[in-house]
Each structure stands twice: as C-alpha cells, then as structure tokens.
Amino acid sequence: MNLSGDIGIWVAAILTLAVFSFLWKDNPLFRLAEHILVGVSAGYYLVQYAYSAIYKKLYVPLFDQGNLLFIGCAILGLLVFTRLVPRKSWLSRYPIAFYVAAGAGYSIPSGLQTRVVKQMQTSMLNFLDQGSLWTNVSAFLLFVGVISVLLYFYFSAEHRGAFGFFSKIGIVFLMIGFGASFGYTVMSRITLLIGRLQFLMGEWLGFL
C-alpha cells in the first residue's frame, strides 16, 4: 500500500466515497458532496457563460467590431431581466418567443432531412438483391421494422385486427432495440465504475 500524498487526489477520493455512500442511504456526507457539486458547477457555468456569451458573442462583435446588429440581440437579452420587475415581466415573453420560434424554424428542416427524408431513402432497399442471404434478410427486417414501428405510432386508429398485429410487431422491434441499447449502455456504465475503482485502488491507495 502506497497512499497518495496529493491533496487533490484525497479530496477526489473522499468525494467519490461520499457519493457512493448514497447506495446505503441519504446521509450528510452525500448531501455535502451533492451541494459541493451543484455549487461548484453553478459557479463554473456562470463564469463560463458570462465569458462565452456576454463577452465573446456580444461585447466583442458590438464594441470591438462595431456590428450594430448586436444591439438588437442585447436588447432581447436584457428583456429577460424584466422578470425581476413583476409589472413589466410580460416583456420577457418577447425574447422567449423569438428563441422558441428561431429554434423551431432552424430544427424543423434539418430534423426532416436527417430523421425523415434520409431515413426513408435508406429504408427503400431491394431486399432481394443485397449481395448475400444475410444482407437480404437484414434489409427485409429493416423494411418490416420501419413499417411496423411507424404503424405503432399511428394514433388515429385502434390497435385491432391486422393493424393491431403489425403494430405489435412494431413494439417487438422497439423492445429488441431498447434491450440492445440497455445492455450496451450498462456496459459503458460498468466501465465508468471500473475507472472510479481503479482511481481509488490505484492513484489513492496505491494497491494497483
């Protein structure tokens, strides 16, 4: 055993153990770690966003580069603070409306391109001629999966009869997908746990 002499490693190790103590039950040590994490991260992001948003994206273009268009952005941003004045808080709805509308306008065409149009193209395969039996079967499963899952998400009809049968196939495809995703993600989480244990046993206690 070769205990670390680095104070930073000791702080990280104690905080790691404090978070792990939640496995037993909620306790003061966990709460301390939780509040440190929340407080430090809130402070960190405040400084980071003040620099990247207010300085780099507003101050520099407006004052250093003289781009007057940013005066409008500054006014919209300042309107958010009217929430602090109850009688004028309705003004804060303007920047929110602008933000939501711009976000929707930006994401709808790109979402349609990547999530609908492109997916449609890759689903329209000649599953009789993909090169080998296995790739033909894969293409056929893809075709059946896409159609049946789309039918599952059709809300205008009850899931009965032939429609119900195909939508049940859809939910089977979904669950197989979720199962594979679950296993894959759990494996990655176990890797994170191993990483923490290696830190505790190696860098902190010096066993490894």
Binding site: F22, R31, E34, L37, V38, S41, A42, Y45, Y49
Partner: peptide, 19 residues
C-alpha cells in the same frame, strides 16, 4: 433553477427526491 451541469443537476434532483 438548479445548475447547468448535467450531473450536478442529477445529483440535486436526486437529493430533492430523497428529502
């Protein structure tokens, strides 16, 4: 508001749930 940090937020919400 809690925090912008992903796991800071998760820790805080978990704590609120427990308390």
């Amino acid at each position: 508001y809690v925090t912008y940090s992903q796991f800071g937020y998760a820790a805080a919400v978990s704590g609120i749930m427990m308390r």
